[in-house]
């Protein structure tokens, strides 16, 4: 693609839990205007990979660079503040708060200085606007005032994405954003991903193969914690090793997932 330093780059990234290697020597890159999808069977280490990239887990070996800056071993909040937003596979939101407050709190994380003790939080216009924008992007504008616990499962998934967007990230790490969504919401999020690609680098872990092949610029296939192949969707489809290990044997299974 281009010669600029990618938004995200990893070198030899590994994570061991005791004797088990969950992620092995993963090297990948993701640029702005690129949607890089990571696919692979369950247990391939995709979520662990995201946890390493977001700083939720510390890697055993290897390096992570965000916009050329080495962030290996930094805590999650520092990585987040460098413009990395992540969503979780298992919905991870603030259930007692309204959808709006979930996003407002997310947007507030970008305030400088971050410790503000006196002016009421709800009076700060820029964070309100950012929250409203994020809610609208994820298709939740009509549900802003509803307590998150009262939202449907699909809406909670949308809120998860909205919160990530509200932090104004440059790099998005999305862990199965479509899981548990209905067809209509899924289509909407796929459209959103296409739009976001214009200004973001997106790393997407997803099981919905139709969606993945529809939006991804680059695909990385992981098996047993290691990268099996990386390339364009067409190249991956044609790749013999991928077909054997993953696509070929039981294609119907993956596509339906």
């Amino acid at each position: 693609m281009d010669e600029r330093e990618p938004m995200l780059r990893t070198e030899g990234l590994s994570k061991h839990f005791g004797g088990l290697a969950a992620v092995r020597e993963v090297a990948l890159a993701c640029r702005v205007e690129e949607l890089h999808a990571v696919i692979g069977p369950n247990g391939a280490g995709k979520t662990t990979l995201i946890n390493l990239l977001s700083g939720d887990l510390a890697p055993t070996a290897g390096r992570i660079l965000v916009a050329g800056k080495d962030v290996t071993g930094l805590p999650a909040h520092r990585i987040s503040r460098l413009g990395v937003g992540r969503s979780y596979q298992k919905t991870n939101i603030f259930l007692p708060f309204t959808g709006f407050e979930n996003c407002r709190l997310s947007a507030q994380s970008r305030l400088q200085p971050s410790m503000r003790f006196f002016a009421p939080a709800h009076a700060h216009a820029p964070t309100r606007a950012a929250a409203e924008r994020a809610l609208a992007m994820a298709g939740l504008e009509g549900r802003a005032g509803v307590v998150a616990a009262a939202l449907s499962h699909g809406e909670q998934r949308q809120l998860e994405i909205a919160m990530t967007l509200a932090t104004a990230p440059r790099l998005l790490l999305l862990d199965e954003p479509l899981a548990g969504m209905g067809a209509e919401e899924s289509a909407r999020i796929v459209e959103l991903l296409k739009r976001l690609r214009a200004e973001h680098a997106i790393l997407l872990v997803e099981h919905d193969m139709d969606a993945v092949f529809a939006v991804a610029d680059t695909l990385t296939v992981m098996v047993d914690g290691a990268v099996l192949a990386t390339g364009s969707p067409d190249a991956i489809r044609a790749n013999r090793a991928v077909q054997e290990a993953y696509l070929g044997s039981n294609e119907a299974d993956i596509v339906s997932k």
Binding site: D56, A76, H77, S80, Y88, I93, L105, S109, T167
Partner: peptide
């Protein structure tokens, strides 16, 4: 944990 991943030094 979610506050941390949102960028807050909790």
């Amino acid at each position: 944990p979610r506050m941390r991943s949102l960028g807050y030094a909790t």
